[in-house]
Write a protein that binds this DNA or RNA. Structure first.
Length: 351
DNA sequence: AATCTCTTCAACCGCTGGGCT
DNA sequence: CAGCCCAGCGGTTGAAGAGAT
């Protein structure tokens, strides 16, 4: 039985032969696809238009990128999926040359299993409920540590002044030169997953600025991967970011990465010019940035919502309430996915 | 070598929404 | 407004290949 769209025709189904591919390619490169339902007849194929369209989009298009997904692509998929869910077509738009079908297959066959192995729910990206009772336990002081490293930091919610205190046992030699620095702002840095060998260490920093405290996690690439001295693209590779104006007035922002989108209120995306150290407001369409796809939260063309993430972040950094472990789990643990942390057993929380 | 099991991924199916009449 | 057509999307299927027994 053929498709309903072409039930009157005698159509072939199943795998495409090289001859069929050749016919389709020749037709589309010569005439364009036009109306897909007319393509089979014009191209001399015993297929339905829907099948032709799918074959072209997913396999024959010249701009397709074949081969294995890179680590960067994999990270992008996870980051965007965390916000958008199973919207494969939207996710694929962030991966030039990749199709929604390809992304979906890669997710189902590879990433999903990897997340589960990490103890993460692939749907929510949070810790699986039965992994640890600690994940829902709340207290004022917490320590996160990676068991096979020396990195620890303490989150102290008992005071408004010091949101995060850090135990910088781990080496700061891995700190990329592009990290925020300024004479007027105090920054504290710590690697969540310190590993000199690791190419993309994840850091957290907090900064005190006037009466605001900004707490940011950053997944950064090392300087040998980017020419940090000549480009300004290095500062906005955020995993997440929040700004606390006061205990009662919290503004929230979330970033996917520097190539994609950001969302939130109250915090304009800024970057520091590595030449003069001055903070600059990020300009959409600024050709000096490779961030031409950046979307503002009120951008009419492409609005991204962060589902329940907003609420989680608010809870997490409301110093008048208990600290939210779910946020920490969902934010920091994924940052370690590409590090030397291979399973949830290597990560733990002490309360 | 044969058989079974698992994994991958191309292709299909059913549904939705937009545009047109 | 209803009905139709079409493109596009996400879930699912199943053939083919890889690996295990």
């Amino acid at each position: 039985m053929g498709h309903h769209c072409c039930s009157k025709q005698k159509v072939k189904r199943g795998l495409w032969s090289p001859e069929e591919d050749e016919k389709l390619i020749r037709h589309i490169t010569t005439h364009g696809h036009g109306c897909w339902s007319s393509v089979p007849k014009l191209a001399g194929l015993q297929r339905c238009g829907k099948s032709c369209r799918l074959r072209w989009i997913n396999y024959l298009r010249p701009d397709l990128r074949r081969g294995s997904f890179t680590e960067q692509e994999e990270r992008t998929i996870i980051d965007v999926h965390r916000i958008l869910g199973n919207r494969w077509a939207q996710i694929a738009k962030h991966l030039p040359g990749r199709t929604d079908n390809e992304v979906k297959n890669f997710w189902n066959s590879c990433i999903k299993k990897k997340l589960i192995a990490q103890g993460l729910d692939p749907n929510t990206h949070n810790l699986l409920k039965n992994k640890s009772n600690n994940s829902t336990k709340k207290s004022n002081n917490y320590t996160y540590h990676n068991q096979d490293s020396t990195s620890t930091f303490t989150i102290d919610t008992s005071t408004n002044k010091e949101i995060i205190s850090m135990d910088l046992k781990s080496t700061l030699a891995t700190l990329p030169t592009n990290f925020p620095h300024s004479d007027n702002i105090t920054y504290n840095y710590t690697p969540i997953v310190p590993n000199i060998e690791y190419q993309n260490p994840t850091f957290v920093w907090s900064e005190q600025r006037n009466q605001s405290t900004v707490i940011t996690t950053l997944q950064s690439q090392t300087s040998d991967q980017r020419n940090l001295n000549t480009t300004r693209d290095s500062m906005l590779d955020f995993a997440s970011c929040s700004l606390m104006e006061s205990a009662t007035n919290i503004n929230v922002s979330s970033y996917i990465n520097e190539n994609s989108m950001w969302h939130g209120t109250g915090l304009e995306p800024t970057t520091l010019n590595p030449v003069n150290g001055q903070e600059e407001e990020m300009q959409v369409g600024d050709q000096q940035f490779p961030i031409i796809q950046t979307k503002f939260c009120d951008d009419k063309e492409d609005v991204y919502k962060v589902n329940d993430h907003d609420q989680t972040v608010e809870n997490a950094f409301d110093v008048n309430s208990n600290f939210d472990f779910e946020f920490m789990n969902s934010t920091f643990v994924p940052c370690g996915l590409y590090s030397n942390v291979n399973s949830m057993d290597q990560l733990s929380w002490d309360c």
